[in-house]
Design a protein around this nucleic acid. Structure first.
Ligand SMILES: [Mn+2]
Ligand SMILES: [Mn+2]
Ligand SMILES: [Mn+2]
Ligand SMILES: [Mn+2]
Lengths: 224, 224
DNA sequence: CAATTTTGTTAGGCCAGTCTAACATTCATG
DNA sequence: CATGAATGTTAGACTGGCCTAACAAAATTG
């Protein structure tokens, strides 16, 4: 069975379960899935049962939700579609990086494997999407994600942004104004815990910025 | 209500009802719709009833099926999406004209109005799709289709192909081999009615070809 | 023009996906 | 560790879209 034969809902469930553990180890809950998909928990609970019946996840009532081998393969295929489509929308159709997520969320269910192949070729086999997230290869290989949350790094070391969470378009637009994007170089000047502020310096633009906790949690960096 | 809020099935029904009278005056029947959509007549009958309840078509049992003003607007919007997507797939992603119909048939339900606008701009506001069919403008204006079936024209007049039906990919591949496409110039040498053969000449390639009736019904031409 | 064939509709059933409401389990806290 | 709060599941209902089978209407034709 190919991933294309799954319903959109099933494809989204698998992708979301997979994504939950990409950047943090906390496994997904029914409630979180319901919230992110904009449905009620009972709907998700039911959907998970159907996925389990199809052998795509393992799940005992009140227990954890785990992808099977097959479920994982399909999830990775959907992640590949999503990220290639986001890249395509930015590079070919001139979308902003804050506009692509919702469009890709729909298109990923409609494009054929052929179209994904053509897009991949047209883009020259990109390995990261506009937000810095790695794009799985056709056979599901994936460079392990690099970086830690900005909120968690020590001050005064030269850093490079590896990814920015695409969850909040407004925040992405704010980051655009500030000139923060994947590959931007910066240094943390200080974390001020009780003020919940992280001050960063952009050496290339000679600029200091105060970031709140949600911003500092949305940016991943690596030593550079 | 925007066309995007209709189900895929409803969008396809409207588009099909509209398309039925684009190149011939015979109105669509329930049976023909069922056949083209690959479902049973009872399914279509039911679907038509739902469309009528939504005010998109008028239909009395056993009577004809007519688009309302709203239904027609939505149908034209779907035709615009379909044909822009076909053009995009050929021009940007390198598809052959025989490969685009099925892909567009799915994508048309998934793309946003924004994406259609971007595609239209990227392509420079094309007015015909890869098969020669006119692309409606954003406000639904449509150059009235030109041409008559090749099977119906008098011999010995210089003609230009205006469109080729995209219904049969195999036939499109055959036409590609023969060099028949929109804007190809040709002359009918003779119709041989009992043999059901139409002989055409391609002056630009100095070649004569015998076409069977299905081919001669699939090609529309205009005097040139 | 009556009978037969073709076409279309209705009835009844199934499934996925959604909801609300009721219930069960697990977690957290006093 | 008992209890209340939070979380998850089940039950029951509804819709759209599909089916088959039975039926109704219309069209064809001898
Ligand atoms: Mn999605
Ligand atoms: Mn992304
Ligand atoms: Mn379609
Ligand atoms: Mn076409």
């Amino acid at each position: 069975m190919s991933v294309s034969e799954l319903s959109s809902a099933a494809q989204d469930y698998l992708k979301m379960i997979w994504s939950a553990t990409e950047w943090s180890a906390t496994p997904i809950t029914v409630g979180a899935m319901a919230e992110r998909m904009g449905v009620k928990p009972s709907t998700v609970s039911d959907g998970i049962r159907r996925l389990a019946k199809q052998g795509l996840v393992t799940h005992a009532p009140y227990g954890s939700i785990e992808l099977t081998r097959t479920g994982n393969d399909h999830a990775v295929e959907m992640v590949r579609r999503h990220r290639l489509l986001e890249t395509f929308l930015v590079k070919v159709l001139g979308y902003g990086w804050d506009e692509v997520h919702d469009e890709a969320e729909i298109l990923e269910h409609a494009v054929s494997a052929t179209m994904i192949t053509r897009i991949d070729e047209l883009l020259g086999h990109p390995v990261r999407d506009p937000h810095g997230d790695p794009i799985p290869s056709p056979d599901g290989q994936l460079r392990p994600p690099q970086g830690v949350r900005l909120a968690a790094v020590d001050p005064d070391r030269p850093l490079t942004i590896t990814r920015i969470s695409d969850a909040d378009p407004d925040m992405l637009r704010y980051f655009t104004e500030l000139g923060l994007a994947p590959d931007t170089r910066l240094t943390v000047l200080a974390h001020r815990p009780y003020a919940d502020v992280t001050t960063i310096r952009l050496p290339d633009r000679d600029l200091d910025i105060d970031l709140g906790p949600s911003a500092a949690e949305s940016i991943w960096v690596i030593a550079s």
